[in-house]
Amino acid sequence: MKKYFPVYVRVPLLFGLFYGAIEFFVDSGDKPAFIEYPSLGILLMLFLFVIIALEIVGNAATQIVDRLMSPEEREEKERLENLPVTEAAWYKKLMTRLTKSKPMEAEQELELNHEYDGIKELDNDLPPWWVYLFYGTIIFGVVYLGKYHLFGGDNQDAEFKKEMASAQLQIEEYKKTAPDLLTAEQVTLLTEPADLAAGKTIFDNNCVACHRADGGGGIGPNLTDEYWILGGDIKSVFNTIMEGGRDGKGMVSWKQQIKPSDIQKVASYILSLQGTNPADAKAAEGDKYEAVEADAPQTSAEEAPAAETAPEESTK
């Protein structure tokens, strides 16, 4: 690295990489990380001091070694450093620089006195790619320590919980406008003719077998009088259709066959049958229901608030 990058390039480069890593890993909003967190500025200055100190010590050590060399050793060192890179493809030159490998003719200069079974050991320096990777792990470790252990950065568990909370908020917002996610708590009475006509069609296709076409009741209870087994407001009727009637003897749940927005329409249509007094109506069952202000009509099914799939039960 020293051969290709002078000290005035190496020091700013390493400092810039370290600063960039801090800005990437530390969430400081619109402000630079070392301003938002003053201790990071101290850490940056410490890192700069360390790399400058390493450069000073490294240069001093190199000078001392050069002074201790004999003229022949110094001449040989210069010869090895100035050996030309093999005239080959560019990637071979790059590999030579990254591995700092010596040509075959220079290996005798690297041989140690260790030999076993004819195999000799070479005193090669660590390859530059390994050294750079090692420096990178040190920088990463310092940034990681600062973010997660000094400045309370979110770990994977905390990030997961935040994302789940954000997703839940989005789901709740979606439920407010999704017509087929109605619940009994959010349903309102529809009075538009188009909605009631759609409800009548659903009623004719699914409910007349038990309640008769006029709602007078057969197997199921009379839907036209004031008496209800499970409540006579829109929310109760909607819930009865969704979840079904009484265990063992009430109506089955229709939520698998009819979507909530359509159940709202049929429930509204059923309530529109109040007081029609069909001929041969079934005797009243349940308790008399008196309407309250909570049964406020809604103009259209498309404007009805949304919610998740809710219970439905027999209309009585």
Rank of each mutant, 00 (worst) to 15 (best):
G152Q: 09
A33F: 01
K100T: 07
D123Y: 10
P12D: 04
F238S: 08
F134C: 08
V252A: 03
Y269N: 00
G286A: 08
L14H: 07
V131D: 03
E105C: 06
P260Y: 00
M164L: 07
G141A: 15
P6M: 10
L169D: 14
Y174R: 04
I64V: 15
A310Q: 07
G41Y: 02
F47A: 01
K176M: 15
D195W: 04
I35K: 10
T240N: 12
M1H: 12
M95S: 02
N113D: 13
A184P: 15
A294P: 00
L48D: 03
G217T: 08
K2M: 08
L223D: 02
V85K: 13
S28Y: 05
S253Y: 02
H149Q: 13
P128Y: 15
E72F: 11
K255S: 15
A294L: 12
G245N: 01
P38H: 03
I229N: 03
G146N: 11
G250L: 11
N206E: 11
F160H: 13
L181H: 07
K3F: 03
Q274H: 10
E81M: 11
F49G: 12
I258T: 05
L145N: 04
I219Y: 07
T188V: 15
F24M: 15
M69V: 04
P193H: 14
L43K: 04
R10G: 06
S236K: 10
E107M: 10
T99N: 05
G136Q: 05
L98S: 06
V292L: 12
Y174N: 11
A283K: 06
D204G: 12
I35D: 01
L110F: 13
A158V: 13
N222A: 02
S272F: 07
A279P: 00
V208W: 08
G118N: 01
V65P: 00
D287G: 10
L223Y: 11
N113G: 15
T86C: 14
S268F: 04
I241L: 09
L80F: 00
F47W: 01
Y135S: 05
Q108F: 10
Y116W: 05
V57S: 02
S314V: 06
Y148Q: 05
E313V: 15
D66Y: 00
R97F: 01
D180T: 09
E192G: 05
Y144K: 04
P311V: 06
L122I: 07
I22S: 14
L112I: 02
P311S: 12
F140Q: 10
K92I: 08
Y91C: 01
K100I: 02
G275N: 01
A21V: 09
E173D: 06
A209N: 08
I258R: 03
G215K: 08
Q170N: 12
L17F: 04
W228C: 02
D233F: 09
E159P: 08
Y148P: 02
S261I: 14
A279Q: 09
I64Q: 03
E115K: 13
V7I: 08
E243Q: 11
D195G: 03
Y269C: 00
Q264L: 08
A60N: 14
D30H: 03
D117N: 11
I42N: 04
T96L: 10
E107W: 00
C207V: 13
